[in-house]
Design a protein around this nucleic acid. Structure first.
Lengths: 351, 351
DNA sequence: CTGAAAGCGCTTACAG
DNA sequence: CTGAAAGCGCTTACAG
């Protein structure tokens, strides 16, 4: 069924003045009634709300913003929202943001720092009340000075939250999953199960998160008396299924292999699982595998993957709360880092 | 290293007036220089741009909007951005939108129609230039009249694009993947390979997209002389991995089973693959499997899944183009439906 | 309880 | 080439 329009033209939006005029009162009174601030006689109130209803009137947020000096809009930059990790944090963030009256502009930087800069400055033009940045330059180990500086300058002007390991170098407030705890939980668990020879795969030293996990696992291995090694594969997109698959194939060709393969994330872990099964070996009986991030594919496999859950709901909430604190205080603190404690989820890819 | 702030307070944003005052000219001239419209002497131009540079000045978009009457902002509602299908279309859409100067507000409705209504009205308040809606009520077979009406009213006021099968009932412009063609390509291919007994799993008649695929496959089966059946499982979240897995288990218990299982999407297909392999059967030798949507997990499995690719890049672009057309024309057409032709991707889950 | 007026930051005919 | 002025739609002291 096709619904025909009254007219084919977009109607001009009606304003507070149109309503005032129709009733024969001032716009100020209408504004007071709608905002709920200030006195309005019951009689006028009902007449006003009748018309609001009739025209389905909504005050123009931009005009309000112009007066109020804030926009109730937040900018959120990720490399690629198709990455489930980013999507899950965003989802939780947005839930809080919109329930608090904020709209979130979601931007994809494709991991391109120049594009990131453009997006950042367009957010500044939009006068968003705050900015969240996850991944992209935040995660890069080596970074031209100007990219760091850009954020240092921006965060003086706009409340800014960076989500990534070691964001202290940007001098801004950070919220991130506590990788040290996550790796710790993982290794503690593996030790309990009697595993000793453990190998991390699928990361790269160019990226802070995987570099940091590596450092943590080395440090912990001494304490726990484990034999931890790290094997990053180059030439592939690290963090990918293929990276895990190919890394595993190489490892399987060697004379002896570790008891546990720890994928830097669940995609990598899944790649490893498939390579192991293809080789005619069993998970976890012959080789155990763990993932990280607890993304949906961790359970969509023949052997469900033990993983570390960042607790997305809490994480997203923390990001929003931290940002809102900056916004409300109208202050830029810029130093505190909030770490979100993850939880280990044991499944049957380990004994 | 911690970078200390000059001041701990957010600086007041400087305006066109501050710049004008510092040089000793009028704000009008500054505006003209920055917008590039109207004449400005070279001398003033350079002085103005020096200060723009110095203060990193960006005009307040909201003030511009208020004058211009548009916001260069688009609202985009999906049930859950963690769903890779939605994320992929959004990603492509956003690419085009932001390269054309539009910011996109991404909202998750969680499939809750009441929340959807709230989000819709908040977008209206924001005076977004256009709205895109994918999934949610758009996909529902049975829908209380008021939910349909709401969209019919909204699209008179704001350019509106609905993405879903059979959106004609909302009387608005639609952009959607051509499921008839997709199912057609799939069945044609299966026939070519000599398959005859085919079963669709993992959908539900409550959802237009799967209902429509069902209708199409029945219609085509007659033409192609195939034996097509449809087995929706209830009690599970349809469209999920579990739904595919459980459906397959039930089918495998029966005395004879089909030659091909067509999952309504790739998650369902993957569930079926795993159930088949668990039963000690081989894919595709014993049973072939196909998916739909060509999501990343289709290739992250031991047996890569033949799937139908909606061609996300083209799809997202089409959505943006259609919306932009509505915005620029300042007209509401509200009837045309653009179908995006998908492509079959053959992998080794079929012969 | 109400209205006139100023102001948020920008743009744009208009007059010079 | 430039500036004064009006206006986008709203809010909010202020005076009544």
């Amino acid at each position: 069924m096709i619904i025909s329009d009254d007219s084919n033209l977009v109607k001009r939006n009606i304003t507070i003045y149109d309503i005032a005029k129709e009733i024969g009162i001032s716009a100020a009174t209408v504004s007071r009634a709608i905002s709920g601030r200030g006195y309005v006689s019951e009689k006028n109130k009902t007449r006003i709300f009748e018309l609001v209803e009739k025209y389905n009137f909504r005050p123009n947020t931009f005009a309000q913003n112009l007066k109020a000096g804030f926009t109730k809009t937040i900018g959120y930059i990720v490399p690629h929202i198709g990455n489930e990790y980013f999507a899950k944090v965003y989802y939780e963030f947005e839930k809080w943001a919109s329930s608090h009256g904020y709209m979130t502009i979601l931007l994809n930087s494709k991991g391109d720092y120049e594009l990131e800069s453009k997006l950042l400055s367009s957010l500044k033009e939009k006068h968003v009340d705050g900015i969240v940045m996850m991944g992209g330059r935040i995660d890069a180990m080596e970074l031209p000075e100007r990219y760091i500086k850009e954020i240092q300058e921006l965060k003086q002007i706009i409340p800014f939250i960076a989500c990534g390991a070691k964001v202290e170098r940007f001098g801004c407030t950070g919220v991130y999953s506590d990788d040290e705890k996550g790796v710790g939980q993982l290794l503690d668990f593996l030790k309990t199960k009697g595993y000793k020879r453990i190998c991390f795969i699928g990361g790269g030293d160019e990226y802070y998160p995987s570099y940091y996990k590596k450092i943590c696992s080395y440090r912990l291995s001494e304490k726990l008396n484990l034999d931890v090694s790290v094997r990053w594969l180059t030439g592939y997109e690290v963090f990918s299924y293929e990276s895990g698959y190919e890394s595993m194939k190489i490892i399987l060709k060697e004379e002896s292999y570790p008891e546990v393969i720890c994928g830097i994330n669940d995609y990598v872990a899944l790649g490893a699982v498939n390579a192991i099964m293809e080789a005619g070996l069993r998970v976890p009986e012959d080789i155990a595998v763990t993932g990280y991030d607890n993304v949906s594919i961790a359970t969509m496999t023949p052997v469900q993957i033990t993983s570390v859950n960042p607790r997305y709901e809490y994480y997203g909430k923390k990001v929003f709360n931290s940002l809102q604190k900056l916004i409300l205080k109208k202050e830029v603190h810029g130093e505190s880092v909030v770490l979100v404690k993850p939880e280990l989820i044991v499944r049957n890819s380990t004994l």
